[in-house]
Computed example of a mutant assay.
Amino acid sequence: MSVAACLVFYSFAVAVLAPRLLVRLAHTGIAPRLGVAAWLAAIGIVVGSWATAAAFLAAELVRDWAQPRQTVLSTCIAQLRAVAAGRYGTAVQIGLLVLAGFAALGVAVLLGRLGRSLLRARASTHEHARMARLAGAHDAALGAVVLDVPERAAYCVAGRPHTIVVTRGALAALDDRHLDAVLAHERAHLSGRHHLLLALTRGLAAILPRIELFTSGSAEVARLLEMCADDAAARAHGRRTVLQALVALAGAAPVPAGALGASGVGVLARAERLAAPADLSRRVRVRLLLGATAAVVTAGPVLAGGLAAAGLALCGPMAG
């Protein structure tokens, strides 16, 4: 069995088992930053394992095609070489070439879709930021653009420069303390580059919607990033103030696509979390479990690579 096979099997196990475990551990937001890290570790390991497996497989194919050996892979390559040479007939030869072409096309299509998704998200947010700056009035004291509309909304969008948008309706609904907390929430999103994480996870979920790790991961990362921003605002202004600001913005206008806003995702769960924080023992337990999960998920491919580098047979070529 090759390193490529080890990585494929491992990534399959992570993709199947990790979503339910991570939802159970991280959904409540007891340790949102660690929850985001654990989700990103699982997603990154699966995608990285696929890429690394493809690279190892390509290297083994090239090596065994040039210098056949007595291994299972070499035997397969010998058969493929015979088919490619037309030994089993023209129809079989054409079938192999068509299959290889479809496989390469499928990979190219997926990569292209991901690239287009990321570019569209970037273009959309940059355009929205530009239009908001044109339509609104920049308030230097707030460090935000104020839109003269009655709907309550406060959100941030990535751009050049990044832009925080607040409506007149939101200003009327928030007193100074609550407004400062909301602005701190939005600044935390921008300083943490949360828009990049969301663009990546949403892009993967869009191109591979049948893989639960990506679809659940995208939704959960969005919730947890809002909780991370809540915590940043609470450290500066207090949990109670952030909670009151969320209540004041309850039922606010929907946050535009690609934007991040205090009233955008999971408001009820976030309000409950702020109103009744978990006790110390539960926080410690969840942190330990999330840290252990992230470590175990990350360790698999590292172990496989280390064994291969050391020349051990567990994930190296196996004689046939």
Rank of each mutant, 00 (worst) to 15 (best):
R202G: 05
A299Y: 04
G86P: 07
L21I: 12
Q93S: 08
V46Y: 03
G115A: 12
V145F: 08
V3T: 09
A234N: 06
L183N: 03
H128E: 01
L97F: 11
D176T: 15
A234M: 13
A141W: 05
V72P: 00
L196M: 04
A41W: 01
A58W: 11
V247K: 14
A153L: 15
A262F: 00
R152N: 05
D64C: 06
L288P: 06
L17Q: 01
Q70H: 14
R130G: 03
A295N: 02
L190I: 15
L7E: 00
P150A: 00
P161I: 08
A153C: 04
A271T: 05
A278C: 11
Q70E: 14
A58I: 02
L111C: 14
A292P: 07
A309Y: 08
A173G: 02
G136S: 10
Q70D: 15
E212C: 00
R87M: 11
S216Y: 03
Y155F: 15
E226C: 07
A53M: 12
A5V: 13
W65K: 01
V92M: 10
L314C: 04
G101R: 07
S218W: 07
L314D: 07
A18V: 00
M131I: 10
G29M: 05
A4D: 14
L99Y: 02
R223K: 06
V255N: 06
E226Y: 03
Q70P: 05
L105G: 12
V8A: 12
V247T: 14
A184P: 03
V72I: 13
V36P: 10
G306S: 13
A184W: 00
A51C: 12
R33S: 11
A313Q: 10
I77M: 10
L208Q: 08
G266L: 01
T71R: 07
F56I: 07
L246Y: 05
V8F: 07
P277M: 11
A144T: 03
A53I: 04
G106I: 11
D64N: 04
S124A: 15
E151V: 07
G35V: 01
A85Q: 14
L190K: 04
R87F: 03
E127H: 08
R130A: 15
G95Y: 08
F214H: 06
R283A: 09
A257E: 15
A275C: 05
V242G: 03
V92L: 13
G266M: 02
Y88I: 09
P277S: 11
V157L: 14
A121Q: 11
L224C: 02
H126I: 06
L290E: 00
G106M: 01
C228H: 03
G305K: 03
V296D: 05
A275Q: 12
T298Q: 04
E212A: 10
R133C: 13
G169E: 04
V8T: 08
V107H: 02
A108N: 07
L142H: 06
A233R: 04
A153R: 12
A248H: 10
E127G: 04
G159K: 08
L99E: 02
A278D: 12
A51D: 10
L204R: 07
L280D: 09
F56Q: 15
